[in-house]
Amino acid sequence: MGGWRVVPVSVTGPEHLRQGTENQDAFAHLRLGDLTVLAVADGAGSAARSATGARLAVEAACDAASLLDGPDPGRSGRSAGARRYAGRVLGLFDRRLDRLIDETGGERGDYATTLLAVVARPPAYVFLAVGDSFLVVEHRGAGPHLLVPPDNGASRGSTVFLTSAGRDAAVRCGLIEDPEITGLALCSDGVLDAVLAAGRDAGGGPSLLAPADFTAYLHMFADRAARPAALSDRLQSPDFTASSGDDKTMVLAVRA
């Protein structure tokens, strides 16, 4: 896919397996011209139709990427494009959700979901994040870096979803330009405790970081002989299931 090997895996969390409920995460990936679109959404466990909300979210992230297709507009154009992309994704999600509610009933909160999306056109990467999914990138020779950390809404009292009243103020979007990025990992909140480590920020406060051994996830699939089932097995291993009862989703993309 546009110079990337994409490996998406989602497994139902042990708590949902015990309850007999569906996996409420969703993922999508798409090649569009020289763009590669990657998206992960994590439906809220407390929302009755969150799996549908997550599916609508990743579909909107892929469909909105047509806005960025075409000749490279240069840096200033790419920065403006990131903001337009975020607006297009949110607009598509809202319109489709409103139409679905008109047809089937329910309320917006029933479809609560987070969203993390990346549109890659190396060396430029547009990202959009709402909620507590997170993005780790691998730098050539420099290892993994937590580029978009999870936002659990601590400063606002709760996680913000695409359906939340205060969503627009909590949207994070931007442009990253880095020719040394060789891998991307979009992760739902369900894998946070298993793959991120506690650290300190520049001011000495508590923070999260991607430890050096995170590289193993991306390096695993630099070898084309490695199969996605290896990642699925890892996400269902005792270490992961003990860390969280939530569904677990990772979309890995490795430069081919």
Rank of each mutant, 00 (worst) to 15 (best):
T36E: 14
A44D: 15
C62F: 07
L35P: 02
S46Q: 10
A39P: 02
T52L: 13
G43M: 07
A57Y: 04
R55I: 06
A54W: 05
L32G: 09
D42S: 01
D34H: 10
A47I: 00
A44C: 14
D42N: 08
C62I: 06
D34L: 13
R55E: 15
L32R: 07
L32T: 00
T52Q: 13
A48P: 08
V37W: 03
A47N: 01
A44H: 14
L56F: 02
S50E: 12
L56A: 05
D63C: 06
R55A: 14
L38E: 08
D63N: 05
E59N: 10
A48D: 14
V37P: 06
A54T: 05
G53S: 09
A51C: 11
A60E: 05
G53K: 05
A39L: 06
C62D: 02
R55L: 15
R55G: 07
V37C: 03
L56M: 10
V58P: 05
A47H: 03
V58A: 08
R49Y: 03
V58M: 08
T52K: 01
L35V: 15
C62K: 01
A48K: 12
A47W: 02
R55F: 06
S50L: 11
L38S: 06
L35E: 14
S50G: 08
V40T: 08
A60Q: 03
G45V: 11
T36W: 01
A54L: 07
D34F: 11
A61C: 11
A47K: 05
G43E: 12
A54Q: 00
L32W: 10
V40A: 03
A60C: 14
A48E: 15
A61G: 13
R55C: 09
G45P: 12
